[in-house]
Structure formats: structure tokens, C-alpha cells
């Protein structure tokens, strides 16, 4: 009986040490949790001016199939100093990250923002198309 107990204990200890040494791979390079979600889309978009008040003339039109965001801004909007805000599907993240004000004044060259799914396997580039009212 004692010998069986010792064997079981040894196996448990070995199993425990094996799992404890396993590399933690549930967090991505930004320290964000990698989940099992594959949803990958933009659900809402906002554009704020330097005074943190919206500069949109109308709600942004988000096409999740064509992967475009069309937004028209008010006359006189200073697009060199704006703060874009994306609302994404659960667990998604955005690339490039928005860390502060952005210069989106080059209307001829639409900016691309890539949405990355929660499982980090799906990447969808969205084209941000801005035009004046």
C-alpha cells in the first residue's frame, strides 16, 4: 500500500513540475490576453478635435465587408490635430496604436488601421476615408 502511495505522489510531483515549467503563452507582445475569439471588425468610429469635441458632420459609415470607414468632417476641421477613436469587437486590438493626436490632413493618402482579432490570428486592414462636409 505504501509503495503505491509513493508512486502516486512521485507521479503527481512530476506532473506538477512539468506544468509549472510550461511557457505562459496566453499573453501577446503588448501584455494583452490572447483569447479564442476570432471576431475582427470595427463597430464604431469617432473623430475628436483638439478640444476633444467631435468634428464629424455625420455618423461614420463603416463597411465591414469592404473594410472602409467613411467619415465627413465639419468645415474648418484642423485634421492635423485630431484624435481618432475606434470601437472594436471584443478582445480585438488596433495596429498602429493610437497614443495621442494624429495628423490625418493628407486626404489623398488614406490611413490604414488594422484590426487584430482576440486570438491574434485574423488581421483586417480598414481604410479611413475622410472628406470635408
Amino acid at each position: 500500500m505504501t509503495i503505491y502511495f509513493k508512486i502516486i505522489l512521485t507521479v503527481l510531483l512530476l506532473t506538477g513540475s512539468f506544468f509549472s515549467c510550461e511557457k505562459d503563452s496566453f499573453v501577446d507582445e503588448d501584455g494583452l490576453l490572447i483569447t479564442f475569439r476570432s471576431e475582427c471588425f470595427v463597430s464604431n468610429f469617432e473623430l475628436l478635435g483638439a478640444d476633444f469635441v467631435t468634428v464629424r458632420a455625420a455618423p461614420a459609415v463603416i463597411d465591414t465587408v469592404a473594410q472602409t470607414i467613411d467619415v465627413s468632417v465639419l468645415f474648418g476641421t484642423d485634421l492635423k490635430n485630431v484624435y481618432p477613436q475606434f470601437t472594436l469587437a471584443t478582445d480585438c486590438k488596433l495596429d498602429p496604436k493610437i497614443t495621442g493626436k494624429m495628423d490625418l490632413s493628407n486626404l489623398a493618402d488614406s490611413k490604414i488601421f488594422t484590426v487584430v482579432s482576440g486570438n491574434r490570428l485574423v488581421r483586417k486592414p480598414y481604410k479611413l476615408i475622410i472628406k470635408y462636409q
Binding site: 474648418g76 484642423d78 490635430n81
Partner: peptide
């Protein structure tokens, strides 16, 4: 830096 030379759409308390 890079601020414009105009401000329109002003309202009270802005």
C-alpha cells in the same frame, strides 16, 4: 506645435 491659425465654431464657455 502645428496648431492652426483659426478657430471657428466657438460657443459660450469655450
Amino acid at each position: 506645435t502645428d496648431m492652426p491659425n483659426y478657430a471657428i465654431g466657438l460657443r459660450a464657455e469655450a
